[in-house]
Write a protein that binds this DNA or RNA. Structure first.
Lengths: 193, 193
DNA sequence: GTCTATATGGAGATAGAC
DNA sequence: GTCTATCTCCATATAGAC
């Protein structure tokens, strides 16, 4: 399907798709041309830095989505409990119930990690930090909160790997359910003390 | 350092290293030549199918290691409890406490997954199956065993992703500790009934 | 801004001497 | 078995007309 592209940001969703499907090295300029509907001329007009700039832009867009949809709600919500539930809903939607890969995670395992080191690092650090913050405000003691947050982020990433390896997206939803109930249990447990 | 290469299998460890470090697409023939110490002539003599055959051979070698070191012990050990402990020790050693990537997991997230679909699939399916078998024989009821096994494999893969993304290998060891105690707790819990 | 044509390099792979 | 030379192809990137 042809895309309507009038400015740089209109191309980002297609670029996101392409990198997710083919990986950074696997996404050739001709593939990108095809999937975005933009010729090389336009592509280099919008992204003078070439593929690397395209990927940086996509990572930036992903980060922005997570910041507004996930990280900020976790950090600022009046009700941290429901912010955590919202996180699971958003994440499930974002990863299409396990049939969509995490581009940042894929970059982390790839040799391109070093080229996008800061963006990759921050994404995971922010996620862990924001979730730990919500857990703490929900009554979970500090060290447990950090551990639970890390466990949750690890589970999400692992589930995406295994789901794709087995071609069984259900692994992802099962995992989300499991860690979510574990988090909520940890919170109620604390509140009862 | 130069390698002593007299037969095909002598090249596998170097190939394994190269693919782990550069990924499948990122590992060019000149990189491979350099790291294995073999010229293109020798390389194509040993692997007429080129890069794809090299990767297949590496995946086969990895699988064989896991079958003998991890899967068979899990399935056959007289004492499933200690087989499970052994698994965690072997896995920690194999992944160098989180500083080594899982090549199969990396392939799963990459677009090369489809080219090695069966090998990628089997690796994870076998791991889950073998661990579930050990858990069942240790007294864990069937459905719980499968869920716990899946959770464990998911955690290992996720920990490798996050450890590499954050440049913090400790994430891996922490995760192993956590899932190990959870498994052992589940088993003792069952045995007390 | 978007196109076509093109430059240049390195990729994977092969041939054939030794 | 291992080497060097070479083939072909497609990659990223650029130039310049429109």
């Amino acid at each position: 399907m042809p895309k309507i592209v009038a400015e740089r940001s209109d191309a980002i969703p297609s670029l996101d798709e392409v990198f997710r499907e083919y990986g950074f090295e696997g996404a050739s300029l001709s593939t990108i041309t095809e999937k975005t509907g933009l010729g090389k001329g336009s592509l280099y007009h919008f992204f003078p830095g070439g593929k690397e700039e395209m990927a940086t832009a996509v990572l930036g867009e992903i980060d922005e989505w997570f910041v507004t949809q996930v990280f900020e709600p976790l950090r600022n919500a009046d009700d941290p409990r429901s912010a955590i539930s919202d996180m699971f809903r958003s994440v499930s939607r974002y990863f299409r119930s396990g049939s969509r890969v995490c581009l940042v995670g894929a970059f982390a395992l790839d040799n391109v990690r070093d080229r996008f080191r800061a963006q990759v690092r921050d994404y995971f650090a922010e996620w862990c930090g924001a979730l730990a913050s919500a857990l703490t405000r929900a009554g979970c003691p500090e060290p447990d909160a950090a551990a639970l947050a890390e466990e949750t982020v690890v589970a999400v990433q692992g589930a995406l790997v295994v789901a794709r390896a087995l071609d069984e997206p259900e692994v992802f939803e099962r995992t989300l359910q499991r860690v979510q109930s574990r988090l909520l249990a940890a919170i109620s447990g604390e509140e009862q003390r």
